[in-house]
């Protein structure tokens, strides 16, 4: 299996003066294969969101390399980073973060339109049907429930068939029933589409069995377990 994500000796240090420096990531190294469902877990302040932001090219590391789909992301300029985020990385945030000025369908179409893709409407419609939002497509994004918004966000994250989808606490703002549905949806997308998911969560139990778990503690990463995914 090819490596979709390969992180080597990653550091993120905040603050310039030594006395004020905070090491958010401390020599983090791990890799994730194509089609895996990986969890980054840890307590608050352990560095998991910082790690996710760096993988998603939303932030820059102090040191170390991040390879996504074989590309060393540290070598990309600003324009290339935007294009890379658009085509190679999908995001699912804790608060869905759909654009409230657009409809659900338009939100899913947006990354495809940014990429200049033809037939974005048809593709977005297919994705929304796959996540069970056929009837909510034409509604404004701020008029749907939290669970529906998170499903739409997953559809948007998958829009350009990215190398990996990064999810930051995707169930953190949902009730337990809705959380289970969202987890089920992501896992099924991983299964059926072979889509790689890297999910940050502080609640590992919600996700059951996964391929890969990275435990973050005080900025260090520990690959605490490698388990086979069981079909849900």
């Amino acid at each position: 299996m090819s490596k979709v994500l390969d992180i080597r000796n990653l550091y993120k240090i905040y603050g310039k003066e030594k006395v004020n420096q905070v090491t958010a990531l401390d020599d983090v190294s791990f890799s994730i294969d194509q089609g895996e469902f990986a969890l980054i877990v840890g307590s608050s302040g352990s560095g998991k969101s910082t790690l996710l932001n760096i993988i998603g090219l939303l932030d820059k590391p102090t040191n170390g390399t991040v390879r996504v789909a074989g590309t060393d992301t540290s070598k990309l300029n600003d324009g290339q980073i935007s294009s890379f985020r658009n085509k190679k990385v999908g995001f699912v945030f804790q608060f869905s973060n759909l654009l409230s000025d657009l409809t659900v369908l338009e939100n899913v179409m947006l990354p495809m339109q940014m990429a200049g893709m033809q037939k974005s409407r048809e593709k977005a419609t297919e994705l929304l049907m796959a996540v069970g939002l056929k009837d909510q497509m034409k509604q404004r994004a701020d008029r749907i429930s939290g669970g529906q918004a998170q499903r739409a966000a997953i559809a948007r994250g998958l829009a350009n068939q990215p190398a990996l989808v990064l999810a930051d606490e995707p169930t953190g703002n949902l009730d337990s029933v809705t959380s289970k549905n969202v987890v089920k949806l992501m896992k099924s997308m991983c299964e059926t589409l072979g889509q790689t998911f890297v999910v940050v969560t502080h609640d590992q139990e919600d996700f059951g069995n996964v391929d890969h778990i990275i435990q973050m503690r005080d900025g260090k990463a520990f690959e605490t377990s490698m388990v086979r995914r069981v079909a849900t």
Partner: peptide, 16 residues
């Protein structure tokens, strides 16, 4: 601000 962040995160360039 939030919308700008969202757009940037899903691939909008500064130019966009």
């Amino acid at each position: 601000t939030k919308e700008i962040g969202i757009m940037r995160s899903i691939g909008a360039r500064r130019k966009d």
